[in-house]
Amino acid sequence: MANKKPTILVVNDDGITAPGIKVLLEEMQKIGRVVVVAPDSPQSGMGHAITIGRPLRLDRIDLYEGVEMYKCSGTPVDCVKLAVNKIFKGTKPDLCVSGINHGLNYSINVLYSGTMSAAVEGAIEDIPSIGFSLDDFSHHADFSHCRPYLISIVQQVLENGLQKGVLLNVNFPHSSKEIKGIKICRQATAKWFEEFDERMDPYNREYFWMTGQFKLLDRGEDTDAAALANGFVSIVPTQFDMTAHHAITELNSWSFDSDRKHEE
């Protein structure tokens, strides 16, 4: 990296016009060459969805001066796939950064997040990848306090690299909190308890609107939830290998003999 500026792929799930991605690409321009590929409309909560039932469109746009930008009709993961296959064409960027998401992606939310899934797809492609999110869902969220940490975290990844199959999930506290520093954390245990608001459309057909509450089930002080609550930037090393390695030994002790006769 000392002899040339790195190439950085910037993606998100809030859409190419979201304020969060503007902040991220502006900071990445200070470090290297930036290529932006982002959805043409908000794709929050898409997880690792890909588009297979309809064609994808990828259009070059001039939204910000000096930035190579493309809007994609697909999901955040589609954006990464198209970038790797059609824009970089056999080469790969030195880094993939996703965000900055309007809203936290800590704890179990990492599974639902389009922001994090884009970063996961980058890691699957062996690209060092980071997902960034802020504790503020507002379109007019204040990202100013995130800027110096973006640079610091990205530079550390570029200098030190990441282990194969590992990416970083970074969450920032709300701008109303003074950031005390960075904490390396584990993912907190939590769950969404959904409710479905039942309604009727003008044709008297039933439909549902999902609501619910996010409940933290983990009081550990080493979690991303605890770090954010105490004013720290949380960094969780995340992997896409979902194997429960600790369960393999136990499962190997089970009998899967399909010919075994069972007593009635």
Rank of each mutant, 00 (worst) to 15 (best):
F196P: 00
I235R: 05
F232N: 03
F232H: 09
F240N: 11
N204P: 00
C185P: 07
K183N: 09
A225C: 06
A188D: 06
R205W: 04
R186C: 00
V236Y: 03
V233M: 02
P202V: 02
L228E: 01
I182W: 01
A225N: 15
F214E: 10
Q239D: 09
I179D: 07
W209G: 01
Q239F: 02
Y203M: 12
M200N: 01
E206M: 13
F240T: 09
Y207V: 03
M210F: 00
T243M: 13
A229R: 14
A229F: 07
P202Y: 10
F240P: 05
T211N: 14
V236D: 05
T243V: 14
Q213S: 14
G220P: 00
G220L: 04
R205M: 12
W209N: 12
Q239Y: 02
G231Y: 13
L216W: 02
M210I: 09
Y207I: 06
T243D: 12
Q239M: 13
P202R: 13
F214G: 04
A225H: 10
G212L: 07
G181V: 12
E195W: 01
R186D: 10
R186T: 11
E195Q: 12
E194A: 05
Q213W: 02
I182R: 04
I182C: 04
V236I: 15
W209P: 00
T238S: 15
D201I: 02
R186I: 10
